[in-house]
Amino acid sequence: MKLQGKEIDVVRKGSGQPLLLLHGGGGPIAAMPFADKLAEKFEIIAPTHPGFGGSKIPDHFNRVDDLVFLYLDLLDELDLNDVILMGFSMGGWTAVELATMNSTRLSKMILVDPVGVKVGGREDRDIADVFALPGEKLVELMFHDVSLAPKPADMPDDQLQLMAANRIALGVYTWDPYMHNPKLPHRLHRIKMPTHFIWGESDGIVTVDYGQKYCKLIDGATMTVIENAGHSPQVEQPEAFVDAVFKCAG
């Protein structure tokens, strides 16, 4: 669909209460089994962040708030109301920023292993530096079961290039300050809707401990920890993940 004069890829599927799904740094996820399951209860609206999935990054885009304004426009354009806002990792950060700016069209927020805030001191590495890790180490932090991780050596060139392009886009949006907005904690009081965190127990990118501290920053927020899952519980434990979603938004 066309937003801000740009063609934005948006997957829409299912019917029911609208659920705006914002993917993480790995790229679009709306085609995954967990999303099919969610589509049985919700109308999923899943845009692809510009730069991901082979799309172009607009010339002036370089921060998460560029995405936030894009999706505020999307909510207006589709005239969506009573929306469940769901964000994964950097998409979770985007969701939280959006909720602090304008939540009038939103009724609930679900955050899956989100980044976006700094909880420790200036010398604490709250969020693993994904750009400073060799591939195999990154996979260990991302996955509970590393056998589920994509293997670049076995991937066809076009898929690997998409993965490389996604990584560039992730860098563009999150490089500095790294994966967080220092002002965000000072704006979280504006979030009044029910907010639920879902976290993979083995996440090494942002740990459960980080999640618990993040959760405490949002009034009344609750959290489900999913066992045997890393940074992407929707991939490693899709059933437990969908159950957790239905439980808080069913």
Partner: peptide
């Protein structure tokens, strides 16, 4: 090591993909 050769945005995706492949 690979990660220092391939910071995001230095190389175009084709080149970056090649480095990811080793």
């Amino acid at each position: 090591t690979e990660q220092w050769k391939n910071p995001p945005g230095y190389h175009p995706p084709q080149v970056a993909a090649g480095i990811m492949k080793g």
